[in-house]
């Protein structure tokens, strides 16, 4: 995933201008623009926390996206240096996701967390359903893919018709493209009063549209509605944009398999 493009996506949907955000977090707009365009590294954890506050997002989500070490962890390691030894052990063993899940399960059983700090925003796989997973779509225009996705979304959103949904999504797409790198785009129409639903579209033929990393589009996550925390949904969708996940999802032949994979990836993030 292209962090800069994701940041721009979140910022545009939050309705904050580049200049305003830069001012809020105390950096120059030129610097922020470089970050958004991928010419500069993702900001430091502290700045990410500031951005998250400005955009009203859970800070951990943004730090996850930027693949930075959370300041929370950093502070903990300072306080309890022996913990870093444990991390080292984990790293040395190259534990994979499944094994980490077992460690996690052990932790949860042995040391139950004091307070559940999980946000109550829905997970992405909860918004998807087999009938909203469109596999091997082939078309020549992004607009057509959006239209087809809108058709399936309309079936799930009572009172909305496909044309209206497609119109909204296209409008948003025109404003600023929603590609977030690694062949993923998240076309969306956010509206707080509509229960969020999402559609997953994998493309049989990659679409050559302008994307932040110039990779052709292979997968679309189309999101309509949003409820309380629409931006969080987008940020969660962005986490799926890793080369591995995209390849896996594009190879899925049944909607259920694709859904299971999304669920799996999401569970890894906790």
């Amino acid at each position: 995933m292209h962090f800069g493009a994701t940041l721009r996506l979140l910022r545009v949907d939050a309705g904050v201008s580049l200049r305003a955000l830069a001012q809020k977090i105390g950096v120059s707009s030129a610097y922020l623009s470089r970050v958004e365009n991928g010419h500069d590294q993702a900001p430091t954890p502290d700045r990410l926390m500031a951005i998250a506050r400005a955009l009203d997002l859970p800070p951990t989500l943004l730090i996850d996206l930027a693949q930075r070490v959370s300041p929370f962890v950093a502070r903990y390691l300072e306080d309890v240096p022996s913990a870093s030894y444990l991390f080292l052990e984990i790293a040395r063993r190259k534990l994979n996701a499944a094994q980490l899940a077992r460690v996690h399960a052990f932790l949860a059983a042995e040391f139950p967390a004091r307070s559940a700090s999980r946000s109550d925003a829905p997970r992405l796989h909860e918004l998807l359903a087999p009938e909203r997973v469109l596999l091997k779509l082939s078309c020549s225009y992004l607009g057509d893919a959006i239209d087809v996705a809108a058709v399936r979304l309309a079936n799930a959103a009572p009172g909305l018709n496909a044309a209206a949904i497609a119109g909204e999504i296209r409008e948003r797409e025109r404003e600023s493209p929603t590609g977030i790198g690694h062949g993923v785009a998240v076309p969306h129409a956010l509206a707080a009063h509509i229960r969020p639903v999402a559609a997953l579209v994998t493309l049989a033929r990659p679409l050559q549209v302008a994307t932040p990393d110039d990779l052709p589009l292979q997968m679309l996550l189309v999101i309509v509605g949003g409820g309380q925390a629409p931006l969080e949904l987008l940020a969660r969708a962005a986490r799926l944009a890793t080369p591995d996940t995209v390849a896996q999802l594009c190879q899925a032949t049944t909607p259920d398999a694709a859904l299971a994979h999304v669920r799996h990836v999401e569970s890894e993030f906790g």
Partner: peptide, 23 residues
């Protein structure tokens, strides 16, 4: 002609919906 193809379990419904969304 703008081509589109995808997997559909309910072709009739999808044809109607695509026709509607494409007006």
């Amino acid at each position: 002609v703008r081509p589109m193809s995808f997997v559909s379990g309910e072709p009739a419904r999808d044809i109607c919906s695509v026709a509607e969304v494409k007006d």
